[in-house]
Design a protein around this nucleic acid. Structure first.
Lengths: 217, 217
DNA sequence: TCCAATATGGACATAAAGTCCAACGCATGG
DNA sequence: CCATGCGTTGGACTTTATGTCCATATTGGA
């Protein structure tokens, strides 16, 4: 991972201080990621929350980085993690003097600690009433659409043109969100990702293999 | 406190109940102080956190106690104690019928416990350790337990003694909560309801029939 | 264009989900 | 005490959904 000595990427050199500052400011609960829009890989990452590292495939596809008229700042949008943690996520296209998109910055903030702290503080002195259970996710296929949609929005590319890596990443999100614990979810996901059932299972297997490797390392 | 009979200051007599109530409500972490604005000394103190006592000099800043048009409530301010504890502090000018400032009330709340609580809660979600998967799979089964438990508590009968109607009702709740949209949920529910798989399906069919009848009516 | 990597449809295997039924337990009333 | 009715139960069985595998088609890049 760390620079083989021959030098840190110029873009990282340029943006690292800003990224690091943000990462420091937001404590251990914000993940700051610099993506390379060309190679679709992570350039650098601070406070990684998802065990990703530099060189790993980005969660970004090719953003619409060529059109200078396109928006450069996205979000904040909400991401839902499996364990219920809610992330606020923003991203920005970083351009060089020539206006070329040289990097994409993403900041993912885990709102949970704040929400918990707020809950504690607001509950102070008040009789703690048993909170009425929130109902089960009413429409889980909506969640699928949401996760896929978020990704697509993030990389600015329609579902049909997602790369293999893209789909793998989305799949990781979906798996993380325990979507596959729901009955009949597989065909829906396959449909949402515009792949066949076979391919879906193939990607899923690949994902599991990768996770297993992560475990052992 | 020790009240030598007639020796208690009239102002203390008047305000003590309120002060004591506040002191009690806010537990051991709030200090309530009654100051004498004339002598600039402490009249009375509850839950003293700084080993001050009645008669000790007040450490009040210059509150404008003479101008009746001035604000009478101040704060909350942050105060820093010698040992590093941070206090949230409010004060109020207490006036008699004539409008003369007869006392100054201060409440100092030690924020440390709350901050610690927040830290504890934050720390829970913080170590992004690979969560033992079976734990999370249990998430929805916990919900089953919760729904069943709620019903049992409501009707005061243990699960074993539920009537058919009871189970039907619980089942309706569970179905409402979309529990059966989860893979492998059926055996868990059957277990939670202490019935066999067969019975479970029987009840479920009955439920569906009832619902269908509702629709048509 | 050709090659290599992927995607795909469908056959197949396995595992859940759901149905059905004969036997059983257990109250109630004769 | 037995007969009867009602609900439960285990297990056989059917139907769907899941997951694997592979030969073939497709696609993107040198």
């Amino acid at each position: 991972m760390g620079s083989a000595g021959e030098g840190v990427d110029a873009r990282v050199r340029m943006w690292a201080p800003a990224c690091q500052a943000v990462a420091l400011l937001l404590g251990p609960y914000a993940e700051v990621v610099l993506h390379d829009p060309d190679t679709d890989r992570i350039l650098a990452i601070w406070n990684s929350m998802s065990s990703r590292g530099p060189g790993d495939p980005s969660l970004l596809g090719e953003l619409d980085t060529l059109d200078p008229s396109a928006r450069d700042v996205f979000g904040p949008y909400e991401k839902l993690l499996a364990d219920g943690r809610r992330l606020s996520s923003v991203s920005a296209v970083l351009r060089d003097e020539a206006g070329k998109a040289s990097a994409v910055l993403c900041v993912n903030l885990d709102r949970t600690p704040l929400e918990q702290a707020a809950a504690v503080l607001s509950a102070f002195g008040a009789p703690t009433v048993p909170r009425p259970e929130p109902l089960f996710e009413q429409d889980w296929s909506e969640r699928v659409q949401h996760i896929v949609g978020a990704y697509v929005r993030e990389c600015g590319r329609p579902v049909e043109r997602l790369t293999r890596q893209d789909r793998l990443a989305v799949l990781a999100d979906l798996d993380e969100a325990k979507v596959f614990a729901v009955r009949r979810a597989t065909p829906v996901v396959a449909g949402a990702l515009r792949v066949s059932r076979s391919t879906l299972y193939g990607l899923l297997a690949e994902l599991r293999a990768a996770n297993a490797k992560d475990q052992t390392s």
